Simulated scan of single mutants.
Amino acid sequence: MISKALERREKLRLELIKAAERMIAERGLAGLKTRDLAREIGCANGAVYNLVADVDELVLRVGSRTLHRLDEALSAAERAGEPSPQEILVRTAIAYCDFAAENLELWRALFEHRMAADKVLPDWSVNDQLQLFRHIYQPLARLFPERGQGELSITARSLFSAVHGMVALGLEQKLVAVPLPALRKEIAGLVRAMLDGLAAHGA
């Protein structure tokens, strides 16, 4: 009896997360309303908080689903062509750009969401985020085997920040917007230039 109740609760919880995902995709993070979600999944507004602790957890759960899909897209890009670490990094950077363009509001929500200063990100959410850095870290480790883990971690974050910045500005729906084919080309050029610079600096 208890297991059936838990099963029903888990099913409703997944429906809530999926409904929140659809709502963010359509309206953006600011458009997420628990009252609308409750109506969509057929429960009382207050019952939403029997399924998740608060809106922060709900947004993080949606973010976790987004990050897992991004992980799959980056993994597919790694396998899709030449196995050299340089080209893997170029392909994953372009795949990141394409994923952001195709999932714009969900991707934005990953970076727009802010928790209260006294709240700590749960371990599962931190792990979801850190897992993605292997797509940058591992090819860099092959390119620069003489570098230590700490140095490679900083380089991986710097490379991500550069690509992310280009994507964020390039997809901005204002004066700085860049056509997607041109943005892909610029990102590929940036990654190659950064890797060439790192190699020259190391030499």
Rank of each mutant, 00 (worst) to 15 (best):
S75K: 15
A117R: 15
E102N: 14
A76T: 07
A77P: 05
L121C: 07
F133S: 12
A168L: 15
F133H: 11
I154W: 00
Q149M: 06
L37C: 01
R157F: 01
Y137E: 09
R147A: 03
E57K: 09
G148I: 02
R91D: 10
R108L: 13
V120Q: 15
A30F: 08
S75C: 09
G28P: 13
H135C: 12
G148E: 06
V178K: 08
Y49T: 04
P139S: 07
L16T: 04
K18C: 15
K4A: 05
L70N: 01
H113N: 13
D196P: 12
T155L: 15
K119R: 13
A101V: 00
M166W: 11
P179K: 02
A47D: 10
L159E: 14
S125F: 14
E10F: 05
A188L: 03
Q131P: 02
A30C: 05
M166E: 14
E146W: 01
E40Y: 07
G81C: 03
A141R: 06
H201A: 02
L14V: 09
L152Y: 08
N45Y: 01
G202D: 05
M23E: 01
W124R: 14
V120I: 12
L37Y: 03
P85L: 04
S158K: 13
A109E: 06
A141K: 14
L29N: 10
A188P: 09
R65P: 05
W124Y: 11
R35K: 06
S64P: 01
A199S: 08
R69M: 07
S3E: 14
I187L: 12
R134K: 15
E78T: 13
E78V: 13
V163F: 00
F99R: 01
A116F: 04
E102H: 01
I154Y: 02
L190G: 14
A101R: 10
L143Y: 04
L130W: 14
N103D: 15
T155S: 13
A188D: 08
H135S: 04
H113L: 07
R114P: 03
I94D: 07
L190D: 10
K33S: 07
S84T: 13
R157S: 05
E21D: 12
L89R: 09
S3G: 01
